[in-house]
Design a protein around this nucleic acid. Structure first.
Lengths: 138, 138
DNA sequence: GCTTGACTTAGACAATGTCCATTGTAGGAT
DNA sequence: ATCCTACAATGGACATTGTCTAAGTCAAGC
């Protein structure tokens, strides 16, 4: 994670306590927090941080490609720090749990030219929806 | 589309002017309207129809499996009347245009058991993102 | 043509996100 | 070490999308 702070500094980011806290909150694997969850955790460390700053910082990190925006449900966007390894998401329809997964195969190859309608395709998102073991047991 | 009205009547739906109008608005291929767009078009035909009714009716149609809810961006949900033929979506990152597409292959097969973490998988959503010919030309 | 329960309405409310004017401050310049 | 200044943070208003409720309305069966 200090890597991240170093990279950001290298890109000319002004390093503030707020940005550091947001970056720290977004550390780890299988982390998929909403903006408000990020804000809540950031407030624990830096009580006076504002919502607007969290939103701004998340937006900047997305633009820089350091984190990913994920919309697995219709509620809040979630932010995924695992931006440097391509992956897809497995979502529990009941509890909303999210796992990163790494499918084989290439969905791009499954879309023939005749189905591209002249589009230039830049990315493919795949979301697997189902029931997690916890919810299946209940 | 009158098929749809017949099916709904057969399921015990009380047939009202409002429901008929919503169903009519959602007719055709490659239709992906937001709830507010549906409301706007419904108002043209039935000026006193309320937003709540449009939301309720769309929700009921989704529950009945007659239309699909699609979240291609983080903005409003869209409603896709093409619910009876499986398909995926191709989305223009610039203008938001949406095309239904029919890829080959089976993304489910691409997820090995070791990557399922005990989940029971019910559905797979695939969204191709890129630039449409119009936006590429501009 | 009644009755009744399902349907519709308007508007308040909720959740999430954006914007803006003001205040604060990181980091280079002196 | 201190000062400057552009960039960042703040907080609160606002926007968008969606949900809920109480009261009124009406489709369809009798």
């Amino acid at each position: 994670m200090s890597d991240l702070l170093e990279r950001l500094r290298g890109r000319g980011w002004r390093m503030t306590a707020q940005r550091r806290v947001v970056a720290e909150v977004l550390d780890g694997d299988h982390v998929h927090l909403t903006a408000d969850e990020v804000h809540a955790r950031a407030v624990e460390r830096l009580p006076e941080i504002s919502r607007a700053t969290v939103y701004n910082t998340l937006g900047e990190l997305v633009t820089l490609g350091e984190i990913l925006e994920v919309s697995t449900d219709r509620r809040a966007k979630r932010y995924d720090p695992n931006a440097h390894r391509p992956h897809q998401h497995l979502v529990c329809a009941q509890c909303g749990a999210i796992r990163d997964v790494h499918p084989q195969g290439n969905p791009l190859a499954d879309l023939p030219d005749t189905e591209r309608f002249g589009f230039t395709i830049a990315a493919v998102e795949v979301t697997y929806r189902g029931t997690c073991p916890n919810c299946a047991a209940a």
